[in-house]
Amino acid sequence: MTVTIKDIAKIAGVSHATVSRSLNDSPLVAEKTKKRIKELADNLGFEFNANARSLSTNKTGTVCAIFPQKFGEFGASLYYISLLNQLRTSLEEEGIDLIVSFPKSSKTGESNIKRLIISKKVDGIIIIHPRLEKIDGQIINFMELSKIPYIFLHHYSSFYEENLADSIYTDHFYGGYNATDYLIKLGHKKIMCITSVGNSYEFEQRLNGYKAALNQNNIPVDENLILFGYRDIASGYNLVRDNIKSITDKGVTAIFAHTDLMAIGAMEALKEFNIKVPDDVSIVGYDDIELAEDFKPALTTIHQPREEIALLGCKRIVEMINGKKIKNKINIVLQTRLVVRESTKQIK
């Protein structure tokens, strides 16, 4: 038998309105009464209708995270999944559900963001996409006109330069610099860099950081030691295997891989040529995914501040959803940190 608000009101000895207000957490009802009615509803197995709540509060209790279309691919998804889990945990503490979508429908090509806003399915939007402005240059104007709370996380966007959007992202230049400088301090001078193809800002910045560290330490940048591939294990493996002669002939003693998966692939390739990590070649990765610590040897890597990104991003979106008056857009740059494990070694 389905339990209704009328049933709860009769048992509690209060009006229907009081039950409804209590379940909607209205300030018009005393906390003691709200607590008693909520406990009674739980004990009776009452399921509050989300549509009914949305009619009375104009809120759905749901936020959408917009990810790149390649989110589901193994090579691209491990860091995103870690970030997604952090976001989900933070929002659940606020009683908010998280759903995942992409900028455009794979079937119709229409904007998923516009559809979600027009259909009033979400209270806010978290955008974790590196090139949203190239996919839909008018989406910021649409979100602004709709008054829906939104924030950009993790990826740098040109929207930030114009102060059009709230943003929290990572300083990838420092991450690239820190990884390379650490290897230099261990005595390495011939440092190969394996990075990603394409025009991704974050990978450009990691590469710029690599070059800056070399220049700062008066080590010439050898463009032949900068290899471009994809972000997965297979690419790291193939890049090192296909360039093993360059590694041995040029006396490469360290590799900086711009993802942990590329670093793991590189280590597997080196093993096939009996090149030991870290005795012969040290390796530093980037991201600090869970697999980095479990792999043998455990991977020295650059940790991306996904916990801080999630906490600060969720705090901001919840404030906006709850109607807090916010005067200025925020632009927060978070720093990476080096995590030293077993894949690097001092050389004499």
Rank of each mutant, 00 (worst) to 15 (best):
F71C: 01
T89W: 08
I81A: 11
G109Q: 07
L23H: 07
E47W: 04
D97E: 13
L83Q: 08
T33A: 14
A52E: 01
I127T: 02
G95R: 03
E73S: 11
K120N: 13
I96Q: 08
S77Y: 10
K35Y: 07
H129W: 00
E39V: 15
Y79W: 11
D42A: 14
K34S: 10
V29D: 12
L145T: 01
G72E: 04
R131D: 15
I96F: 10
S146I: 08
E92A: 13
F67M: 15
F74P: 00
D25F: 02
I37R: 09
K121D: 06
A76P: 02
I113C: 06
S56I: 03
D123T: 14
E133S: 08
N49A: 11
I66P: 05
I81Q: 08
K114F: 05
F74S: 01
F102G: 15
L98V: 13
G61D: 02
I135F: 02
K38F: 00
E73D: 10
S26C: 05
G61N: 04
Y79T: 12
G72P: 01
R36I: 12
V122R: 03
F67V: 15
L87Q: 05
I125M: 04
H129M: 00
V100R: 03
V29E: 10
L44R: 03
T57C: 06
Y79I: 01
K32N: 13
A50Q: 07
K147W: 00
C64L: 13
V100S: 05
L116W: 04
F67C: 07
D97N: 12
G109R: 09
K70T: 15
I148K: 05
S90K: 14
L78Y: 05
A41S: 13
V122L: 09
K121I: 07
V29W: 10
F71L: 01
E47L: 05
N43Q: 14
K34C: 13
T60P: 02
L84K: 07
F74A: 00
R88Q: 14
L116N: 07
G137H: 06
E39N: 13
I128Q: 07
K38I: 06
R53W: 00
H129T: 00
F102M: 15
L132V: 02
E133D: 08
I135T: 15
F71K: 00
P27G: 06
E92F: 09
I135C: 05
L28I: 07
T62L: 14
T108A: 06
T33W: 08
G124K: 03
L28R: 14
P103S: 00
Q86Y: 07
G137C: 05
